[in-house]
C-alpha cells in the first residue's frame, strides 16, 4: 500500500470517503458513484444518535432483568425465572459452566457494552486515557461481541418450542425475552451509529498540538 504523500485523511485532502466501499470523492459529493452510499465527511449527529440508542438500550435492559424470561410448568410445580434467577438455579444444580455462559452473555456482555460505548462516546468529546488503537480495538470488540447477547433469546425460543409435552412439562417465554431482545438490538444500533473516524480525529489533533 502506498501512502499518497504524507499520511493524510480524506478530509484534509478536500475529499470525502465512502465508508461502505472505501472509494474517495471530491468533498461535497452527496452519494457514492460506485455503491450509492450517502457520503458524509463525518456522520452527522453521530454522537447524539449513539447516545439516543444507548439510552433506550439501557432502559429496555431494566425490565429485561425484572420480568421472568421463562416460565416452566411441570406436573409437580410451575415456576418463573428471571435471567439472573435462571443462572443461579443452574449453578445450584451443579451446571456451573452453563450458568457462567448465561451470566456472561446476558449480564457481563450487555453491561460491558453499555460501558464501552459510553467510554468511546465520552472519549471523543473529552479525550481518553486510551490510545486511538486501543479505542479502535474496543470498538471492534463491541461490534463483534454485541450480537452474541442474542443467544439467551434463542435459548428461550428453543426451549419454548421444544418443551411442549402437555401436562408433563411445558415452557413458555416471558415478557423479559422481548425487552432483552430490544435492548440487544438498540445497543447494536448505538454501536453502529458511532463513527470510528472521530476517535482518530482527536488523536491526530492531539499529536499536532
Amino acid at each position: 500500500m502506498e501512502i499518497a504523500g504524507t499520511l493524510r485523511t480524506a478530509r484534509e485532502m478536500g475529499l470525502v470517503a465512502c465508508t461502505s466501499c472505501t472509494r474517495v470523492w471530491p468533498a461535497g459529493t452527496e452519494r457514492c458513484g460506485r455503491c450509492g452510499h450517502r457520503l458524509h465527511t463525518r456522520a452527522p449527529l453521530a454522537l447524539q444518535r449513539v447516545w439516543a440508542w444507548w439510552l433506550v438500550g439501557v432502559i429496555a435492559y431494566v425490565p429485561a432483568n425484572l420480568y421472568p424470561m421463562l416460565s416452566t410448568r411441570t406436573l409437580v410445580a410451575s415456576q418463573e425465572a428471571t435471567i439472573i434467577g435462571g443462572a443461579v438455579d443452574l449453578a445450584r444444580h451443579g451446571n456451573w459452566g452453563i450458568a457462567l455462559v448465561i451470566l456472561t452473555a446476558s449480564v457481563a456482555i450487555p453491561l460491558g457494552k453499555f460501558l464501552a460505548i459510553a467510554m468511546l462516546a465520552l472519549g471523543v468529546r473529552h479525550g481518553s486515557a486510551l490510545t486511538g488503537s486501543r479505542r479502535q480495538q474496543l470498538y471492534q470488540v463491541v461490534e463483534y461481541i454485541g450480537r452474541w447477547s442474542m443467544i439467551d433469546v434463542f435459548v428461550v425460543a428453543i426451549l419454548a418450542s421444544l418443551v411442549q409435552l402437555g401436562a408433563v412439562a411445558s415452557v413458555s417465554p416471558g415478557p423479559a425475552s422481548l425487552f432483552f431482545a430490544l435492548s440487544v438490538i438498540f445497543t447494536m444500533l448505538s454501536a453502529q451509529s458511532f463513527d470510528s473516524r472521530l476517535i482518530w480525529d482527536a488523536e491526530r489533533e492531539g499529536r499536532r498540538a
Binding site: T9, A17, S196
Partner: peptide, 21 residues
C-alpha cells in the same frame, strides 16, 4: 490525483494510493 486509484480507510479516514497485493 487520480481518485479512482485511491482508497480511504473506512475506520480512520486515512487515504492511500491503492496497490493490489
Amino acid at each position: 490525483p487520480d481518485l479512482t486509484a485511491m482508497i480511504a480507510c473506512p475506520r480512520c479516514d486515512a487515504v492511500y494510493r491503492a496497490v493490489q497485493p
